[in-house]
Design a protein around this nucleic acid. Structure first.
Lengths: 124, 124
DNA sequence: GACAACCTTCTACATCTGTAGCAGGCTCTT
DNA sequence: AAGAGCCTGCTACAGATGTAGAAGGTTGTC
């Protein structure tokens, strides 16, 4: 499932809490954008047509719930990026991250802690 | 600099070696795509117009050289992804990577080694 | 010098994306 | 019941993207 930039913003708003109405979404993205109400509506419709969210009508208002999870969306976005830009391997991405993206000391420490904490549970 | 998926393929071909002609590029992407020659040409023109490559005409053939480096392209693609999908922080991406993307043991080891090797040179 | 083979530029067109207006349908409140 | 205020579905339209054809210039070869 491929999401456009604008669709990502809408999904982020929905992941903050659902069901949410178009107006809820509009308010949640209010800091980032100056969208008209109908813009949000159009995006929600497109997401519904794609199967990324479900729409439930109660009286005259549509309530939206993500069908695509944030983790799934992240996975596929990352997969796309790695495929097109990092030779298709996470190793290449990780290498770039450490080598080029000047993580600060805290981030590196955190990264190592995460690695350490996984050692127990990931080795057979 | 934002590259489209098709533009990424062309740039990858150019990073393999330049200057390269449109025909070179077509051959290099031949495994991945079934593009017509003019498709490559169109993409190269667009990339030239964006300033991602330079075009040099010798006799009747154009020779292309990347102006945008692979590293620069990776940085900005990664930046975009992190901004839209990972709360704008590398930490969040790294967390996802380790937590969700089941890096294999070798990749984790490699990652830690890289971290270790950086300790010396990155602390003031 | 004519022909094949290759190059170029221009143009085209469908789809996707960002963004939104319009017209009409509910609903709550006076 | 009428009006304000919010909701909906439909339509629109420009720019980006994927993909390529057509027509014409260049060049190497017989």
């Amino acid at each position: 499932m491929k999401l456009s930039d604008a669709e990502w913003k809408v999904m982020q708003a929905l992941w903050e809490g659902s069901p949410a109405s178009a107006r809820d979404v509009l308010e949640r993205v209010g800091d980032e954008t100056e969208w008209a109400y109908t813009t949000v509506k159009t995006l929600l419709t497109r997401l519904r047509d794609k199967g990324a969210v479900s729409e439930d009508k109660r009286s005259n208002t549509g309530w939206y719930v993500p069908l695509l999870s944030r983790q799934q969306a992240r996975r596929s976005a990352l997969r796309s990026l790695v495929d097109k830009a990092f030779d298709g391997t996470f190793g290449s991405l990780v290498h770039h991250l450490i080598d080029t993206e000047s993580l600060d000391a805290a981030e590196k420490r955190r990264l190592r802690d995460l690695l350490d904490s996984l050692d127990g549970k990931s080795e057979p």
